[in-house]
Computed example of a mutant assay.
Amino acid sequence: MTKSYPVVYGYVRVSDRQEGAAQELRDELATWCAREGWHLGAVFTDVSAGIDVDDRIGFLGLLDALALPQARGAVVLDPAQLSPRPELITRMMRKMRATGSAVVCRSGELPPMALKHCQGQPELTS
């Protein structure tokens, strides 16, 4: 019997001045996921994303992927990858958790209101 690894999907947001850094961030996500024993299904990216999360093509793609039956979670390197604004991080966390998937940030601290959405989330274990 082959071992099953949890399928996760990543998200990266960069400004237009950092567009070249997007690949480095995707590679960093892939390395982290491999180290944790997670299968990284895809990484969704937004460049120069506006404030309205409903206009972020990459984030909307992430939400669609998290709705797939095999999806177990979303991975983000740092909450700042979601937004510099705590209220937007909280809104995005709420949307991701509404899919039933876990949300894991490698580093950085989530705003207190966003942390509330992580309570009771499933573990990403294989």
Rank of each mutant, 00 (worst) to 15 (best):
M1Y: 04
T2V: 02
K3G: 04
K3W: 03
Y5A: 05
P6S: 02
V7W: 00
V7P: 00
V8G: 04
V8R: 04
G10K: 02
V12Y: 03
R13W: 07
V14H: 04
S15V: 12
S15Y: 10
Q18D: 15
E19A: 13
E19G: 07
G20N: 07
A21T: 08
A21G: 13
A22K: 03
R26M: 03
D27C: 05
E28Y: 01
E28F: 05
T31H: 07
W32R: 06
C33Y: 00
A34Q: 15
A34V: 13
G37E: 01
W38H: 06
H39R: 15
L40H: 01
L40K: 03
G41A: 12
A42F: 02
A42W: 01
V43I: 03
T45G: 00
S48N: 15
A49N: 11
A49G: 15
A49F: 05
D52I: 08
V53I: 13
D54A: 11
D54T: 14
D55F: 10
R56N: 00
R56W: 01
I57W: 07
I57R: 14
I57S: 13
G61L: 11
D64E: 14
L66S: 07
L66Q: 06
A67E: 14
A67M: 12
L68D: 11
P69A: 14
P69D: 10
R72V: 05
A74E: 06
V75L: 00
V76P: 02
V76F: 06
V76Q: 00
V76T: 05
P79Y: 10
P79W: 08
A80E: 11
P84T: 09
P84K: 00
P86R: 09
I89D: 02
M92L: 12
M92C: 11
M92A: 14
K95W: 12
M96G: 01
M96P: 07
M96I: 06
R97D: 02
R97L: 08
A98V: 04
A98M: 01
T99H: 08
T99F: 01
G100M: 05
A102P: 04
V104H: 08
V104F: 12
R106K: 15
S107H: 09
G108K: 09
G108A: 11
E109F: 12
E109S: 14
L110N: 04
P111I: 09
P112G: 13
A114N: 08
A114H: 07
L115T: 12
L115D: 10
L115Q: 15
H117R: 04
C118K: 08
G120L: 09
P122M: 05
E123H: 09
L124P: 06
L124G: 00
S126Q: 10
